[in-house]
Design a protein around this nucleic acid. Structure first.
Lengths: 108, 108
DNA sequence: TGTCGACATGTCTATTCTGACATATGGTAG
DNA sequence: CTACCATATGTCAGAATAGACATGTCGACA
């Protein structure tokens, strides 16, 4: 995980209960975060590639601009369900999702 | 989607708000369900391949046997987050997840 | 300078999801 | 039959997440 990611992770409040120390994450917790990061980065990439604004994506999702911003910021308050629904609302297929998720951890 | 899957989907209460008729799902809704089904089937497969009981998986997850059963039954009350955490708790990597998700829709 | 569009951030309340529990079913061994 | 194990199903109080709204930052443009 590079410094930018780490910073985002900490700022976002990702410290979890079981491991008390900073970066004292279990491998599973770390993996889950990596997957979410891959989805949130992939979402921004896909949205920008399609020249869609956050407001427009929110409209298609039946959500709000602020929630889209949080998705792309990998805010801990956004669920995987929502991230995945956002990808689908932009026309991603299951295979596209798989590709995006497969990118997790490659930049460690 | 084969009949068994369809049955599970309906029994589970997947009828969504926007589309009122049976199978009147939007493509995004259908895709989301397919992804979840792939994850739930993949979970059972992985768990059985490792000869782990639902009780044991629940213990590793910090959850309960009934919730694991619901995950594998693709119950609408289980989130993708939980499904993914379950996979990770069984040792799956991001790449394994990608492979599992990529299987969605292939049995349509 | 003022305003406009796009995005970020914080905080509400309502909805959804969670673990826990009770209980039922089905199979297998004694 | 009884006892046990694995799994299924329904319910519920509490935790997590949702959309909505207010508000702030930044850059572009006139």
């Amino acid at each position: 995980m590079d410094k930018a990611k780490r910073a985002r992770v900490v700022r976002g409040g990702w410290r979890v209960g079981t491991a008390d120390e900073f970066l004292g994450l279990t491998p599973e917790e770390a993996a889950l975060i990596e997957v979410k990061l891959a989805l949130s980065e992939g979402l921004r990439a896909r949205r920008l590639a399609m020249s869609v604004s956050q407001v427009e994506l929110a409209r298609r999702l039946g959500s709000s601009q602020s929630r889209v911003a949080k998705m792309e910021a990998a805010d801990p308050s956004v669920s995987m369900d929502l991230l995945v629904r956002a990808h689908l609302a932009l026309g991603a297929t299951a295979r596209d999702l798989a590709r995006t998720i497969g990118k997790a951890n490659r930049a460690a």
